[in-house]
């Protein structure tokens, strides 16, 4: 694997227009070696366009560098550093699994011995002679992943890798992907499925939220949750205590939104504030039977981000 300097990818004020339509608007972010970025956004948000710009497959405004090399000038070199798994592309259906791997190994300048290893890695050795067109969706996607990994590139870009797979295919693919994610590469994975992002452990890393062509959030998961300004939900079981009396205490502590729901008090609060609430209750002689904390879900944060963005866009249009 080629050793590259830090701040591997730098996307700086990138805009991509198709006629008058802006598919990507002034997008900026960075990604470093060893980082995993979940690129989130609804369908049509501009994730694929952004990836294609990063590979030098599209003309765009702004600048993109990979390890200091400008995509416009060094696109060929950059594509050698990136294993790309496109969403809307496929291997050659009329060629066998092995022939596909050998062809792409040739294009990447890789020795054909690597093909044998790759077949093992993607668990397709048994199907080496089968035409790619005759593979199941999951096997075909594994072949695509194998092609992207032939040169063991330091960067991996996966565009909606499980979007078109059935449940079995998704499970197999995620298992394989998990092994690759453990190798410490710089990985960008786009998905519109937050559940999937959880399952493939993307949220150990960074989040890049793209909506309507704009990067509306780029940073760590913690920052993402913080910026979404979502609070924890504290559920306190009242037990033998009177719920109304308890909720009054909580409200007196400044948590006006506290509510009684069945035998529970539900309070929306920040991470640190839950100790203040529990101590305040204890000081007034209420000992909760038990309590649990529900942290804000990524779905909620994502919805908040994209709906705020939508609101801003609407406001701008209205002002015009």
């Amino acid at each position: 694997m080629t050793i590259l300097a830090d701040q591997l990818i730098k996307v700086d004020h990138v805009t991509k227009k198709y006629g008058r339509f802006k598919a990507v608007r002034d997008a900026s972010f960075t990604a470093d070696r060893g980082e995993i970025h979940a690129v989130l956004g609804p369908n049509g948000a501009g994730k694929t366009t952004l990836f294609r710009c990063m590979l030098g497959l599209l003309n765009f405004e702004g600048s993109i560098t990979v390890d200091g090399n400008d995509v416009r000038k060094g696109g060929k070199w950059i594509r050698g550093q990136v294993g790309y798994l496109p969403q809307h592309s496929s291997p050659y259906d009329d060629m066998s699994v092995e022939a596909n791997l050998k062809f792409y190994a040739g294009l990447k300048g890789i020795n054909s011995n690597r093909v044998e290893e790759s077949l093992k890695e993607i668990r397709l050795t048994r199907f080496r002679d089968r035409k790619a067109g005759a593979l199941s969706g999951g096997m075909k996607q594994r072949l695509m992943l194998g092609i992207s990994q032939l040169s063991d590139p330091p960067i991996l870009i996966l565009d909606e890798p499980t979007a078109n797979l059935d449940v079995q295919g998704q499970l197999e693919f995620r298992q394989l992907l998990g092994e690759i994610l453990d190798k410490g590469k710089c990985v960008l994975v786009s998905t519109h499925l937050l559940r999937e992002a959880h399952e493939i452990r993307l949220f150990k890393g960074h989040v890049l939220v793209v909506n309507k062509g704009r990067v509306v959030q780029a940073g760590g998961v913690e920052d993402f949750m913080k910026d979404a300004e979502l609070k924890d939900h504290l559920f306190i079981d009242t037990g033998e205590n009177k719920p109304d009396a308890m909720v009054k205490v909580v409200r007196d502590l400044g948590f006006k939104e506290a509510e009684v729901h069945k035998a529970q008090i539900v309070v929306e609060c920040n991470h640190e504030e839950k100790f203040t609430i529990l101590k305040g209750l204890s000081d007034k002689g209420f000992t909760p039977e038990s309590f649990r904390v529900e942290e804000p879900s990524l779905e909620k944060a994502f919805m908040q981000m994209t709906s705020d963005d939508l609101k801003t866009t609407t406001e701008k249009v209205t002002k015009k």
């Binding site: 060929k76 496109p86 592309s89």
Partner: peptide, 14 residues
């Protein structure tokens, strides 16, 4: 048409 162009052009070739 066969969706093979993007994969082909994303290789380290011009």
């Amino acid at each position: 048409d066969r969706n093979t162009l993007e994969l082909l052009l994303s290789q380290p070739i011009s």
